[in-house]
């Protein structure tokens, strides 16, 4: 049975802002706009995204409430951002490696938020999800990583048709 885990929506800026009593950090981005981001919504990926050294602090922005797609914007490099989503929601039959992520992060499975990078072509008749290397975050410590699952059956560009 799949372990309980945190949903992507619970990890987003709006939800976390409710719990915020600490300060905020300002995101200034030409591409993604400006926002006051509560410090409680910032998480650190270490090791970060493969091929992006120096990009460690990120925030999830919920720009379209109800959409399964969120923006993951880098606070260290504010023009660097991605669309992420919950693979459980977008890929039928996806088995979430929650326990594995919890072991790697040394945390409880229920504190794990797991999501994947989405590649969106200019004409989005289809999108591609990186199931081979999901991002796992321990929400309690706000630390996570891009986790590489050494599993030959997982696709770094899993196609999801949108037409």
């Amino acid at each position: 049975m799949e372990a309980r885990r945190s949903s992507l929506a619970e990890s987003c800026d709006v939800e976390l802002a409710k719990a915020a009593d600490a300060g905020t950090v300002r995101l200034e981005s030409r591409r993604f706009g400006s926002a006051e981001v509560p410090l409680s919504a910032v998480f650190t990926l270490d090791p970060g995204l493969v091929g992006f050294p120096g990009a460690h602090r990120f925030v999830l922005l919920d720009r379209d409430a109800g959409s399964p797609f969120k923006w993951m914007v880098c606070l260290d490099q504010p023009e660097l951002g991605f669309v992420v989503t919950d693979p459980v929601e977008c890929v039928p039959g996806y088995v979430c490696p929650t326990e594995r992520a919890a072991a790697v992060l040394s945390c409880e499975a229920e504190d794990v938020a797991l999501f994947v990078l989405v590649t969106i072509p200019k004409e989005p008749k289809e999108i591609f999800l990186n199931l081979l290397a999901p991002i796992a975050v321990d929400l309690r410590s706000a630390r996570g990583l891009q986790m590489v699952l050494e599993d030959g059956s997982l696709d770094p560009a899993h196609r999801v048709p949108l037409a």
């Binding site: 091929g51 797609f69 669309v83 990078l117 590649t119 891009q146 949108l162």
Partner: peptide
């Protein structure tokens, strides 16, 4: 993975809005 990460990095956010409605 690096190749897919680079492809996923957004250079344009205009078509992202359409994604939600398509979905």
């Amino acid at each position: 993975i690096e190749r897919e990460n680079r492809k996923a990095a957004l250079d344009d956010v205009d078509h992202v809005g359409r994604l939600a409605s398509l979905w």
